[in-house]
Nucleic acid binder design. Structure first.
Lengths: 339, 339
DNA sequence: TACCTCTTGGAAAACATTTTCCTGGACGAT
DNA sequence: ATCGTCCAGGAAAATGTTTTCCAAGAGGTA
């Protein structure tokens, strides 16, 4: 089972066997090469990955860090990352943070201790200074050790990043909805300390201001970035009473919860209230009514992040790949009824 | 950065440093222990995981093999597995097969070469003899090498298994639907060579027979085990014409596609046709109408499989943990209209 | 033929740990 | 006091590769 046994069985040295099995820069003569491969097959040799990692000081592991793998947003990205990694013959290790900022740097340290070749950090980052600093430091150590890091959505870290244009996407959506005839809006704005949520809120808000539309304070509700957060935020919005004809929810997962809450409250979508989301997660197209949203190419973003970390040459300074969102009009938004 | 440097810095031997950092069976005196921990912290020491794996001949990796991580069925199970693994301080490596039976044994070999401590095989197994034999052999080598294997759904392999009672679950669903007044059924039966799909079909069929209900051959349609497979199967069913008042789809992901196809064809659910699925994936509750199904505790199944592979003592012979499915009545099924 | 270069093979160092085995001292019992 | 037992600490072997360095032979050129 060890390479030494293979070498002995083939009657060659350990060095030669090693060169044959993984093909180094050095050549090995035809005869010996065949003897070695034959012996390896015959003995059912399987290389010891940890020994290789130790000797080479780099492994075939690629890290993927997400908040919650059962969230369709992250599982779409994960599908992209695994697809790309497996093409390269690498294996992906999946870390989940449960949205604890601390976990992110801890996982990165673990991956460093495993000599992971690269890591993809997905998931929107908290605005918290302290955890960002820790994370940046950890990324620096990871790259110094030879690893590569790519982020999805986490602008501002010392690594290549895929950045959806949240601000302009939300603004475009706002303009679309205004063109549809809406001028009284409510917003489920997600957590206050999440960069992504804030950018989408700001973009939407800016477009409204541009069109001369004021947004009443009580029409902006903050809450968790999850389905249940969306449900609960909606209940609060309705309890406070709202005059809006259109509800913008800063991500689709929350919007799904919002729709459930509206349905439970007996409101019809879009007749009583239009609803729009952001992301275009795959499960969306099966909701009724189908949700108007801003499409992000999630799986592609995962792939691209992995490609960035694996294939591309290491750039001197962090690159930023912007991704545009495209407004997708579906049945959940319609011109406001002439009440 | 190496343990030797830490040892030198603390003025102790390598052995002592090792014993302090990871706590072996041996004791280390108070004074030395403190010197070592202080040095480690001061130097920012991080253990080299591959060296540890090599020396210990076991790693902190847990494998998880699924067909497609963006499928909610698998991502729910994955959430359970990662949850349990991370509790134990282990990290999970995610392998996706894309439903190629060959990939499954290849991934298992890779995990063996990494000295993974355990692996969870999720995903229904093909009926194919050859690939099952290969997989069994690979599992045997994995366990012989000290690793543990647990399966979800893959009965018949030499490993502990979580087995949903597909047969009786489907039968219970059939009885429920019959009690609701249906007696003309159609079935989207999934792939012919998938054990899970076949068991559910058989169970449903058996309950119908028991009730004296015949199932016309043209009312059973086979197709891919995916959303699009469900969509396409439904189109074929409708194209052929059906007199059924109730459609049973062997899994929820397919059922989601089926509902879309029915909607596109202008059929109302449940007025024109009742629809029922199987699994109870989380996205289901947001469909309209919400889908009647057989609930499986997916996340729990993942957790339990991981627990089986990590915590339990190794049993002499493979254990089988049966999981009962519970019929969940929602709005997608109703008594047939008196046409 | 002598010298130089190039190629192929092997011996051994290097990688960073864990663990076995040995040594010396402390302590308790006879 | 002597022996035996236990315990903390260290030296070194062991884990399975890769890779550097050396040697020997082949082939080409002066």
């Amino acid at each position: 089972m060890t390479l030494e046994q293979v070498a002995r069985h083939a009657g060659v040295s350990l060095a030669t066997a090693s060169r044959v099995i993984n093909g180094s820069t050095r050549q090995v003569g035809e005869k010996l090469r065949e003897r070695v491969t034959a012996s390896a097959r015959e003995l059912g040799y399987l290389a010891n990955a940890s020994a290789q990692t130790l000797a080479r000081n780099t492994s075939s592991l690629v890290g993927l860090i997400v908040h919650d793998i059962s969230d369709p947003y992250f599982s779409s990205i994960a599908a992209g990352v695994t697809g790309c990694a497996e093409q390269e013959g690498l294996i992906v290790v999946l870390g989940t943070t449960g949205r604890a900022p601390q976990r992110e740097s801890d996982l990165l340290a673990t991956l460093r201790s495993h000599r992971a070749r690269a890591v993809v950090l997905a998931g929107s980052r908290s605005i918290d200074e302290e955890s960002t600093r820790r994370l940046s430091a950890e990324i620096a150590m990871f790259t110094r050790q030879g690893g590569r890091v790519a982020c999805v959505t986490q602008e501002g870290l010392p690594a290549d990043t895929i950045v959806p244009d949240n601000h302009n996407g939300a603004a475009a959506l706002a303009r679309h909805l205004i063109a549809q005839g809406h001028h009284r809006f409510a917003i489920l704005a997600g957590p206050t300390d999440l960069r992504t949520a804030r950018d989408r809120l700001d973009g939407f808000h800016a477009a409204l201001s541009n069109a001369g539309i004021e947004l009443a304070h009580h029409n902006v509700v903050h809450g968790a970035f999850t389905r249940d957060g969306g449900y609960e935020s909606t209940r609060r919005l309705l309890a406070a009473g709202t005059d809006a004809t259109c509800l913008f929810v800063v991500n689709d997962v929350m919007a799904t919860g919002a729709m459930a809450a509206l349905r439970d409250a007996g409101l019809r979508i879009p007749q009583d209230l239009s609803v729009a989301g952001f992301d275009d997660i795959p499960t969306l197209r099966d909701l009724t009514p189908a949700l108007t949203t801003v499409r992000l190419p999630l799986e592609w973003m995962g792939e691209e992040a992995a490609r960035l970390a694996l294939r591309e040459e290491h750039a001197a300074s962090p690159r930023v790949i912007p991704v545009l969102g495209e407004v997708v009009q579906r049945e959940s938004t319609a011109p406001p009824s002439q009440a």
